[in-house]
Design a protein around this nucleic acid. Sequence first.
DNA 1: GCGATATGTTTGCACTGCTTACATCAGCGT
DNA 2: ACGCTGATGTAAGCAGTGCAAACATATCGC
Lengths: 202, 202
Amino acid sequence: MSTSVKPYHHGDLRAALLAAAIESLEAGEPFSLRAVARRAGVSPTAPYRHFADREALDSAVAIEGFRDLRADLEAALAGPTEPAAAAAPEEVITALGVAYVAFALRRPAVFRLMFGNECDQEDSERVHASEHLHQMLNQSIASLFPGANNSNLSIALWSVAHGLAFLHLDGKLRPQTSDDVAARVKSAVGALFALNNNTSGG
Amino acid sequence: MSTSVKPYHHGDLRAALLAAAIESLEAGEPFSLRAVARRAGVSPTAPYRHFADREALDSAVAIEGFRDLRADLEAALAGPTEPAAAAAPEEVITALGVAYVAFALRRPAVFRLMFGNECDQEDSERVHASEHLHQMLNQSIASLFPGANNSNLSIALWSVAHGLAFLHLDGKLRPQTSDDVAARVKSAVGALFALNNNTSGG
DNA sequence: GCGATATGTTTGCACTGCTTACATCAGCGT
DNA sequence: ACGCTGATGTAAGCAGTGCAAACATATCGC
């Protein structure tokens, strides 16, 4: 039993705080520095040894979120169809969009943290995490459309997914099952692909 | 001088609080109930006579925001080209998108209030304000593309504008002059219109 | 051993949203 | 003119927050 006496030092408090923060967020609880400290079983101001301020904790969580989102998107790219077989661009883009929106709805609080506030441009690590995502999207689009200038298209398609994610998150598009949402993303992408074809979305 | 002695009752405190709230937001100051009360020259708890809680004030501000945004979009519709002359769909959509993103960047805090949190579905007035906007977009798209089912297209295009707005707001697309942003919106819309044409955005 | 250093605690401040009890005023019936 | 009633604003106080400063404790290099 003597092994369970809590030592003065935690061991890896930084990681514990990060985990606690994500748990708090995912549980829908109010995400406060104090609450996170409580959950980690540590004094209210202990986190300041590891994070300069509240926003630094935010950023650390956001960075993890960006990593997870990238993983989801890469899984979607490699997913249903064999990666070797060149899938139709519309299918690939739909898969990316569905994965993007699904991530947002599955982990709404983290997604909001990642995107829902002006990111401190001084925080180079956080800025880099979001740029890394951006680059990944650019490359995906570039490989789908080996044309000249697809940075515009890349931004446009990112915006579609991002907008769909936030409109669903904020309840502007009505509550749906995740299947419904996926269908909606698919329809939206389809409508865009049909835009200049017959001037009428399916 | 006796005319300036502050009366016990304010007269129209609700309106004054709303105005103060918007001023606070637009000034980039932290938007708290107490700060709003202070700005209106009234005790910290006076607002509770007019707003059930903090969120009720939020909603009231958001509703004004929705009204303003609709006005901007309608101005964009009636704007550059004569409303009688049937403008090309791409131009109209670009104009709408530019107006939408411009609103978001001109009044970022209000825009975040309108969209950046789960809207209380119980607050029927607020829900209605956002649905009104949605309907207006639907009708615009419907009149541009008199096809069968354009609700998908409408959602897709709304998402593009919404995503562009938030990605700019959150610094995910780099800081730009408002002209740059407008050009970006235009390019994005152009890339989408060219999507299935030559599989390469201009 | 011993001192520097990293880590966690205590205390305290200013701020927040919100509740409860109280003060002031306006309008109305008598 | 008087006083009641309801609407509006105030005062005091609670729990919670982010944060800074001073203090305590454990770890590591010498």
